[in-house]
Simulated scan of single mutants.
Amino acid sequence: MAGIGEGWMGRALAAATLHRWSEAADKAETADLPLLRRQRSAARRLKQRLDRLIHVADGRLALPVIGNQAFPRPHDADWAWRPDLWSGPLATPGLSSVQPKSMLGERATLFHDCPHSEITLRQLRNTREADLAPFGLRLEVFRFDGAYLSLALDLPDEASQGLRRKHLIRLDAIVEMERPLEIFARLNIRHGPNTEQIVRELPLKAEESRVEFDLAYTRLNEKRIEHMWVDLIFEGPEMNQVILRDLTFSRRPRAEL
């Protein structure tokens, strides 16, 4: 209560209010029932307001700040991006018994071929001081009787603008999991009637993982680039929980030889 109000008068009033409620709580076991009933009603009204204040304060004061786009990136990067799923709250924060091609947010789509889905997806609030991303994504898989499970992330148009074969695309991720499993990242670039694909396995021995896609080894038609997306492919996900604390992309030109 001492944090309410400004000046000595506000602090004194808050201290008196706290003392009064503490005294009422101490005497609740022996208080007259009519008095106790009035105190209960008043306490419930106060609790509703306190809960609302705490909820708003937790959202505003928790680390990191919502909308944060700060993250380590190459000094010569000409494009960098953290998807909305990791940077801001979603209107629908979670899905259960997720069906194939279900979307979470505007750019994330889950693909699988399970006849009976026991898969859940949920956006969660990051509150660790070490986290730069405001939000994370939790994927839980119970029984899994399908052949594949992947999360497709559409990259914005800016990622394709000015894209050349001399570019390197980097993916950085912070991943937690209950049990070890393999996660592959596949970069897809549609150019005209063709789609170039580059697959890399995420090194998950450390919490922070990084892979790079070198476009020099593709047959990319730079004049016909239409769209880019990345598939995160989970191998053997049954009875596991994976939390993607952060996921970021960046693009930089390869150093000239």
Rank of each mutant, 00 (worst) to 15 (best):
P72M: 03
L215M: 03
R252S: 12
M239Q: 14
M103F: 06
G10R: 13
Q197R: 15
L204F: 04
L153M: 14
A159P: 10
E140S: 14
T127F: 09
L215S: 01
L151F: 06
P83L: 02
E222L: 04
G105P: 06
A25E: 00
W229S: 05
D32T: 11
A43P: 01
L139S: 07
A62P: 05
L139P: 12
D84C: 06
E238G: 01
S160Y: 04
L187S: 03
S150M: 11
S102N: 06
A28G: 00
R45P: 00
S41K: 15
R186F: 00
S22P: 00
D172Q: 15
P180I: 08
A43Y: 12
I183V: 15
S87P: 02
S87N: 02
L168D: 00
F144L: 04
Q99K: 15
A14H: 05
A133E: 02
R82Y: 04
D154V: 08
I233N: 02
L53H: 13
P72W: 02
R52M: 11
N188M: 07
A42M: 13
H19A: 15
D172G: 14
L153A: 10
N68V: 00
A14R: 11
R128V: 00
R164M: 07
F71Y: 07
N240S: 09
H112M: 03
A255G: 01
L63W: 11
R52Y: 08
N240Q: 09
L36M: 12
T218N: 06
S41W: 08
F184S: 08
Q197T: 15
K101M: 06
I54S: 11
A216F: 01
P89C: 06
W229A: 01
R200V: 05
L151G: 04
D172I: 09
R73S: 14
L215T: 08
F249Y: 15
C114T: 13
T127C: 15
S150V: 02
M239G: 00
G59I: 03
D172V: 14
F111W: 05
R128K: 12
R73L: 08
E129M: 14
D113F: 07
L220C: 03
S150C: 13
A31R: 15
P115T: 05
L153D: 03
G94W: 05
E118H: 14
R122V: 09
S87A: 13
G136D: 00
